[in-house]
Write a protein that binds this DNA or RNA. Structure first.
Length: 600
RNA sequence: GGCCCGGUAGCUCAGUCGGUUAGAGCGCUAGCCUGUCACGCUAGAGGUCGUGGGUUCGAGCCCCAUCCGGGUCGCCA
C-alpha cells in the first residue's frame, strides 16, 4: 500500500470545515485524534493544526475500507477522502467547531503508523513538565500549544507590520560578539582561529543598535534572540527573544508614543481587546512607595502606606527603634478580607515575607464582628492604634500587615511581594484584565554589594534627566535616568531609555561608575570613538516577546510560548544538551577540561 | 549558593501507625456492539515505589546521601 501523499493531498484543514462546505468532496491530512468504534460504524477524528473533524466509516457501505479504518490507532498519520455531509440534528456535536458536519469516507490512506505515545495528546489531561519537554514534539501537537505558537507568530507579524509602517528598518546584528563585564553572565563561544579568545553571545543588541543610529539608520527594529547565563525562572530562559527597537532625534515621549500605538494594535489584533491611550505613567519612586515594586500590579489595591511617624512616637520598641535608627515602618490594608485569614495563615505569611529579608510581620486583624486581635496593639496606646487605623483607612473586616525595617527597600519590597501573594491567594488576579502602565524616572545608579560600588541600573549609556545632571558628581544616587519600563499586570514587558549621545557626558558617566580612563577605553573604546564622529540624540526600547506572548496567552510560564524551551538547570531534556564533545573539537579550540575533585 | 514542594503502572494520582499479594482513573491490548462524540460493555497485560546506603524481624512510608523536575531568594547592566 502506498504511503505517499500522491492523490490524497489536502483540500481543506480539518478544523476549517463548516456547514457551508457541505456537498463538496474533501481530502484531509492529519493525525488520528481518536477512534470511536461502534461495531458496524466507526468514527475517526482527524486532527491538524486548524482543529478536528469527524470521518465516518460504515461497514455495510464498504467493508474493505472499514477494515482499513479498523486498523487505525491514535496518532497514526492518515489521509481521508470523502464527501462532506451535514450531520442529523440529533448527531450535531455543539462542543466542536466542526460539529455540524462530518466526512463520509470513501478512501483512507495510512501515511504513517505510530507507537502509543507516552502521554495522551489532549488539553484535557495535565502532564508534568519533565515528560512534556522530553517529548516536546508531541506536546506541541496539543491544540493549546499550537494556539500559543500561532499567537506568537501573530504578534511578531503585527510588530513587523506596525514598525514597518512607522518607518523602522529591520536589521540583523551579530550573534558572535564581545563579552562585556557589566550586566549578566555571558554565554561564551571559543574561537578556533584565535586560540584562548572568546566571542560572547549577545545579552541584547544594545551597542549595535546605538551604532546604527550613529550610522543614520534613524529607526531600527529587530526581533532577535538574546542570551543570559543566569538562573532560570518561570519568566526567564537562558535564550529569549526581544522585539528590539531604536529611534533617532527623539525624546522619551516620542518613544513612548510609538510604542503605545504598537501595544494598542497588538491587543486589538491578537486578542480583540481595546486599550485606552495614553497609558498611565508612574515614577519609580511612587511605584516603590505605593506598591513596593518597580513593576507594580495595579489590578488590585492593598497599597502600601507609611506609618513611620506614628511608629516613631510609640513605645513599642521594634517600631520606635527602627524609625529612630533611620528605618521605616509601612503597612498594607487587606481591606475586607480579615475573616479569611486565621492565625495559622497569618503565620505562614510571616514566613513568606522572610524570604524577602523582612525580619518579621506584625499584624492587626479587625474582624467583621468588631473584635480586634493584633501582634503589636498591646504595646500601643489607644490614640496610637487609632492613628494607625485612620492612616490605613481601616474598618471592621480589614487586616493590616506591618513591616518595620532599617532598610526602606526591604520593607517596601517584602510588603509589595506580600500584596501580590495575597491577591493570588484571594483569587483577585484576572488574567483577562490587562493593566498596562509605564514606570519612569528610574534611578540612574544602584549600589552593588558584590562590587562595593555604584553600577548602572539600566546600562551605562542611559541618559540622566537634565534636572538631575548637577547631582552626577555630588550625589549620584539621587540622579534619575531617562529610563522607562512598560509593565503589564506586575510583569516587566519591556524597558528602554534615552541614550547619552554626548561624548563628554558619557565620560562623566563612566567616571561616576568608577571606570578609569583606561578601563573605559579598553571596554568601550569603539563606542567612545564612534560618538566622537557625530551622534544624533536617540533612544529605544526592547520588549520581552516571550513574556508578552505568555500574558496574551494567559499562561504562567514563558516555556508555554517557546517551542523548545530549557528546564531550570538550563538543559534541553529532548536534545540532552549541553553535552560533552569530542576531544578533537576541544583540541582545535585549545580548550582543556579541568575536573574538580568532587566531580570524580 | 540558600529555602520550599514533588518523584509510586505509559500518563495523572491515592497509599492510614512501619506489617499479608502496592491500588484507582485514563491510556494500552483482545473480544462484543451500526450514529458515537470523554461512546459503551466484557476480559487482560502492565510496577527496580527516582538512585545508593542505613535503621528494623519487617521500609513505598523512618534516617543519611545523591540525581531529576517545579517554584522562589540571591543573581538577572
Amino acid at each position: 500500500m502506498s504511503t505517499s501523499i500522491n492523490g490524497m493531498k489536502r483540500t481543506d484543514y480539518c478544523g476549517d470545515l463548516r456547514k457551508t462546505d457541505v456537498g463538496r468532496e474533501v481530502v484531509v491530512n492529519g493525525w488520528c485524534d481518536r477512534v470511536r468504534d461502534n461495531g458496524g460504524v466507526l468514527f475517526l477524528l482527524v486532527r491538524d493544526r486548524a482543529g478536528v473533524v469527524q470521518c465516518t466509516f460504515d461497514k455495510s457501505v464498504n467493508a474493505e475500507l472499514f477494515q482499513v479504518a479498523f486498523g487505525v490507532r491514535t496518532e497514526f498519520v492518515i489521509a481521508v477522502r470523502g464527501k462532506l455531509v451535514a450531520r442529523d440534528d440529533a448527531a450535531v456535536n455543539t462542543k466542536m467547531p466542526t460539529g455540524e458536519v462530518e466526512i463520509m469516507a470513501e478512501e483512507l490512506r495510512i501515511l504513517s503508523k505510530a507507537e502509543t505515545t507516552p502521554f495522551e495528546i489532549s488539553d484535557e489531561k495535565e502532564v508534568g513538565d519533565q515528560i512534556r519537554l522530553k517529548y516536546r514534539y508531541l506536546d506541541l501537537r496539543r491544540p493549546s500549544m499550537q494556539r500559543n505558537l500561532m499567537l506568537r507568530h501573530r504578534v511578531t507579524q503585527i510588530a513587523r507590520n506596525y514598525f514597518d509602517e512607522k518607518g523602522f528598518l529591520e536589521i540583523e546584528t551579530p550573534m558572535l560578539t564581545k563579552s562585556t563585564p557589566e550586566g549578566a553572565r555571558d554565554y561564551l563561544v571559543p574561537s578556533r582561529v584565535h586560540a584562548g579568545k572568546f566571542y560572547a553571545l549577545p545579552q541584547s543588541p544594545q551597542q549595535y543598535k546605538q551604532l546604527l543610529m550613529l550610522s543614520g539608520i534613524d529607526r531600527y527594529l529587530q526581533i532577535t534572540r538574546c542570551f543570559r547565563d543566569e538562573d532560570l525562572r518561570a519568566d526567564r530562559q537562558p535564550e529569549f527573544t526581544q522585539i528590539d527597537l531604536e529611534m533617532s532625534f527623539v525624546e522619551q515621549d516620542d518613544v513612548i508614543a510609538v510604542n503605545e500605538g504598537f501595544l494598542q494594535r497588538v491587543f486589538k489584533e491578537a486578542l480583540g481587546v481595546d486599550i485606552a491611550l495614553p497609558l498611565p505613567r508612574m515614577p519609580y519612586e511612587e511605584a516603590m512607595n505605593r506598591y513596593g515594586s518597580d513593576k507594580p500590579d495595579v489590578r488590585f489595591g492593598f497599597e502600601i502606606c507609611d506609618v513611620s511617624d506614628i511608629a516613631q512616637k510609640c513605645s513599642f520598641k521594634v517600631f520606635h527603634d527602627t524609625v529612630e535608627n533611620g528605618g521605616t515602618v509601612r503597612l498594607i490594608n487587606v481591606d475586607g478580607y480579615a475573616d479569611q485569614f486565621p492565625r495559622k495563615e497569618i503565620d505562614k505569611l510571616a514566613e513568606f515575607v522572610k524570604t524577602y529579608r523582612a525580619k518579621g510581620l506584625a499584624w492587626m486583624k479587625l474582624a467583621s464582628d468588631g473584635s480586634m486581635t493584633s501582634s503589636f496593639a498591646k504595646f500601643l496606646t489607644e490614640e496610637e492604634i487609632e492613628a494607625i487605623k485612620t492612616r490605613a483607612n481601616a474598618k471592621a473586616g480589614d487586616l493590616l500587615f506591618v513591616v518595620a525595617d532599617a532598610d526602606r527597600d526591604t520593607a517596601l519590597i517584602s510588603l509589595g511581594a506580600l500584596r501580590c501573594e495575597l491577591a493570588k491567594r484571594l483569587g483577585l488576579l484576572r488574567k483577562d484584565d490587562y493593566k498596562l502602565l509605564w514606570v519612569t524616572e528610574f534611578p540612574q545608579f544602584e549600589y552593588s554589594e558584590e562590587e562595593d560600588r555604584l553600577v548602572a541600573k539600566h546600562h551605562p549609556f542611559t541618559a540622566p534627566m537634565e534636572e538631575d545632571l548637577e547631582l552626577l558628581d555630588t550625589n549620584p544616587r539621587a540622579v534619575r535616568a531617562k529610563a522607562y519600563d512598560i509593565i503589564l499586570n506586575g510583569c516587566e514587558l519591556g524597558g528602554g531609555s534615552i541614550r547619552i549621545h554626548d561624548a563628554a557626558l558619557q565620560t562623566r558617566m563612566f567616571r561616576a561608575l568608577g571606570f578609569t580612563e583606561e578601563k573605559a577605553q579598553e571596554q568601550f573604546g569603539h563606542l567612545i570613538a564612534a560618538f566622537s564622529y557625530g551622534a544624533p540624540p536617540h533612544g529605544g526600547l526592547a520588549y520581552g516577546l516571550d513574556r508578552l506572548c505568555m500574558l496574551l496567552a494567559g499562561h504562567d510560564s514563558i516555556r508555554d510560548v517557546i517551542a523548545f524551551p530549557k528546564v531550570q538547570n538550563a538543559s534541553d531534556l529532548m536534545m540532552s544538551c549541553p553535552d560533552v564533545v569530542e576531544q578533537k573539537q576541544l583540541d582545535e579550540l585549545s580548550i582543556a577540561i579541568v575536573h574538580t575533585e568532587d566531580e570524580v
